[in-house]
Amino acid sequence: MQRVNMIMAESPGLITICLLGYLLSAECTVFLDHENANKILNRPKRYNSGKLEEFVQGNLERECMEEKCSFEEAREVFENTERTTEFWKQYVDGDQCESNPCLNGGSCKDDINSYECWCPFGFEGKNCELDVTCNIKNGRCEQFCKNSADNKVVCSCTEGYRLAENQKSCEPAVPFPCGRVSVSQTSKLTRAETVFPDVDYVNSTEAETILDNITQSTQSFNDFTRVVGGEDAKPGQFPWQVVLNGKVDAFCGGSIVNEKWIVTAAHCVETGVKITVVAGEHNIEETEHTEQKRNVIRIIPHHNYNAAINKYNHDIALLELDEPLVLNSYVTPICIADKEYTNIFLKFGSGYVSGWGRVFHKGRSALVLQYLRVPLVDRATCLRSTKFTIYNNMFCAGFHEGGRDSCQGDSGGPHVTEVEGTSFLTGIISWGEECAMKGKYGIYTKVSRYVNWIKEKTKLT
């Protein structure tokens, strides 16, 4: 034993070699072989497995989906700052455009905790909710729209109204504003409101030439003092309507412009014939205590009207009353817009006519005020429907199939267009061939041609 100890002390290297040989010859039971080890760690190889990531292109799944990435790591994937920024906006807080917040056709661009709407022409605001041009839906104005110097929408209202708090709607500024039905039992019968379409306001006024200088022999019209197929109006439903009495009662109609003036057809009036105007009328054979009678003290036909040349060209006249009318729910003026808007309103496509005229061709006159909704007829169809001249200051309205029309005794009465609950004068009943005849239409004086003249002559002093 002493000898062994001496050998170990003198030859430590020998001992180490012996131990190493023993270990190498022993069977290893701690580690699995290569094949079995792979069965336990069965993990798919990654895209760049075996390579240094710093030297390969980034992978979106590896960089940002398996674990949260930084902007720089995302930049490695896209290799483009702009594309990385677009991805980053949604990656950080989701897609803010998912709810489609942009209105009126706006395009949404996502941002971090926010979004941006790219608005089409005519709109602005956070969600493109603000109209900035009158060309689109009248700028959301209830009545009139004008573009300011910086191309912003400025709404306005006709006389007797003021802008509401929203700067879009119009509200009454006087007790009985024009064009409004205020009798409670008839307010439910107000005709369907007309909503502004998209309009090209630059070209809204037709490029028409008034044929002022045409000389033409007097034409022989049949029954051209021209509501057939209409309905009984309720008291106060058309408070701007008046009836004219002269040699015979209810020979023509008219509309209240203001307390002192009536507008009617020029062919209705004769110099030297006494005319009485009755406002607030409903049943011409009954006294309903809503009527107001006034005498006409002055007749002003349009300066281009000449019955000797043509009885229905420039067929418009103004009547001055001896005493002002007292405005109330049964006696209310009709609204008159400017030339541009009167023309736009007419193009809405349908209007209402009213009167006490004959209820059928050569038949009896109506006792109760009649009204009828009539569609506008395109000019080409209008011209083809008659052998008589249709001037540019006239328009056609009615039904091709016949059966409904204005008729004798309705002449001078109103053709009105309702705009968001307020009625505007767009025409004056003038003439036609018979009444409600198939293929024939009622012919009306186009008020847009005469609004400046009306307003100039009827100013209240």
Rank of each mutant, 00 (worst) to 15 (best):
R3K: 09
M6Y: 10
E10V: 13
S11C: 12
L19F: 13
Y22L: 06
Y22P: 02
L24Q: 03
A26I: 11
A26D: 02
E27Y: 06
E27S: 12
C28I: 02
V30F: 14
N36E: 11
L41A: 15
N42G: 05
K45D: 11
R46E: 15
Y47V: 14
N48G: 05
S49A: 05
G50W: 07
G50N: 15
K51R: 11
E53A: 10
N59L: 05
E67P: 05
C69F: 03
F71P: 08
E72M: 10
E72F: 07
E73V: 08
E73G: 08
R75E: 14
E76V: 15
V77N: 15
V77F: 06
N80K: 09
Y91R: 08
D93F: 06
G94M: 10
D95C: 03
S99N: 13
S99V: 09
L103W: 04
N104Q: 03
K109D: 04
D111S: 09
D111V: 10
N113C: 03
S114Y: 07
F121A: 04
D131V: 05
T133S: 14
E142W: 04
C145P: 01
K146M: 11
N147I: 09
S148L: 13
D150P: 10
V154T: 10
E165P: 07
S169V: 06
P172M: 06
A173W: 06
V174G: 06
V174R: 09
P177R: 01
T186H: 11
K188C: 05
A192F: 08
E193F: 07
V199D: 14
A207C: 06
L211F: 14
Q216P: 12
S220L: 14
R226E: 15
V228S: 11
E231Y: 04
D232G: 05
K234E: 14
Q237M: 09
F238I: 06
Q241T: 14
Q241P: 02
V242L: 02
V242G: 00
N245M: 06
G246E: 05
D249R: 10
A250S: 12
G253P: 08
S255G: 06
S255D: 01
K260G: 03
K260E: 03
W261S: 01
A266R: 03
I275Q: 03
T276L: 05
V277D: 01
E281Q: 11
N283L: 10
N283K: 06
I299Q: 07
I300E: 05
Y305D: 01
Y305W: 11
N306Y: 05
N306T: 03
N306F: 05
N310Q: 07
H314Q: 03
D315L: 01
L318M: 03
L318K: 00
L321N: 00
L321R: 00
D322W: 02
S329F: 04
S329D: 14
V331P: 01
T332W: 02
P333H: 02
I336H: 00
I344N: 09
K347W: 04
G351P: 02
S354I: 14
R358K: 14
R358V: 05
G363Q: 11
S365E: 15
L372V: 12
D378S: 09
A380S: 08
L383W: 14
L383H: 14
N393M: 03
S406N: 14
Q408A: 06
W431K: 13
E434N: 13
A436G: 13
A436E: 11
K438C: 07
S448R: 02
Y450P: 00
K455N: 07
T461S: 14
